[in-house]
């Protein structure tokens, strides 16, 4: 009988000790107040990134025709000189600019024909499916160590893409028509191992229809 009591007492003590060290209680209102002060504001971060990092970097963006030429002749040099990425792997991002004639206005993208002296190529300006990290990463201005978790990093991409969807694309889509000359700047995603230059897709950051 005494042994049983001692056994149960030990069990209760151990369980009590574990529970005491397993949970803690606080006032919900105080926790909420504290967490709202610490919360990451992705919208503000994205807006600041757009204004202070992305737009100032556009004039320095590599010319698309020159980039394609370099990718064909010396891809390793092209990736090293002009691409950025936050993660490891073969996917890299380029901030590019260029000019061309609108060849087609489709539901999801605008096809632009770029003709140079010896080169002639088509690029797709994405106007519907603006997703991914291309624009965020192409500038090379974000320091991953500033973020405590990847969710915040992804939220920045989403907010940047949202700015493009709301502010860059609608005025362009309203006016653009086949035959227009457009100036564009944006981000391109390329795989350095499986390089495909036949279908270049650009997530636009700046779109401008030139006066005839």
């Amino acid at each position: 009988m005494t042994n049983k009591i001692i056994k149960y007492a030990v069990v209760v003590l151990v369980v009590g000790f574990i529970l005491y060290n397993a949970v803690y209680f606080e006032k919900l209102s105080e926790v909420k107040a504290a967490s709202s002060e610490e919360a990451f504001d992705a919208t503000a971060y994205a807006q600041s990134f757009w204004t202070n990092a992305l737009l100032p970097a556009l004039p320095e963006a590599v010319d698309l025709a020159a980039l394609i030429h370099q990718l064909k002749t010396n891809p390793a040099q092209a990736f090293e000189s002009h691409s950025h990425a936050l993660g490891i792997g073969n996917i890299r991002y380029f901030l590019v600019q260029g000019q061309g004639k609108v060849a087609a206005v489709n539901e999801n993208e605008v096809t632009v024909l770029n003709e140079q002296d010896t080169m002639r190529f088509l690029v797709q300006l994405e106007t519907e499916f603006v997703y991914g990290n291309a624009v965020r990463d192409a500038v090379g201005a974000i320091d991953i160590s500033e973020f405590t978790n990847t969710m915040h990093l992804n939220q920045v991409s989403e907010e940047v893409n949202q700015i493009i969807r709301q502010e860059v694309i609608p005025p362009f889509r309203e006016q653009v028509k086949e035959g227009d000359i457009v100036q564009f700047a944006g981000a391109v995603e390329l795989n350095q191992k499986y390089l495909n230059l036949d279908e270049i897709e650009i997530i636009p950051v700046s779109l401008m229809i030139m006066e005839p």
Partner: peptide, 22 residues
């Protein structure tokens, strides 16, 4: 995120040990 009980204005937080046990 712990467990929130708004009706009692109570937040139950979990330590590392608590999270692992649960």
């Amino acid at each position: 995120a712990g467990i929130e009980l708004p009706a009692f204005d109570l937040f139950i937080g979990f330590t590392l040990l608590g999270g692992i046990i649960v």
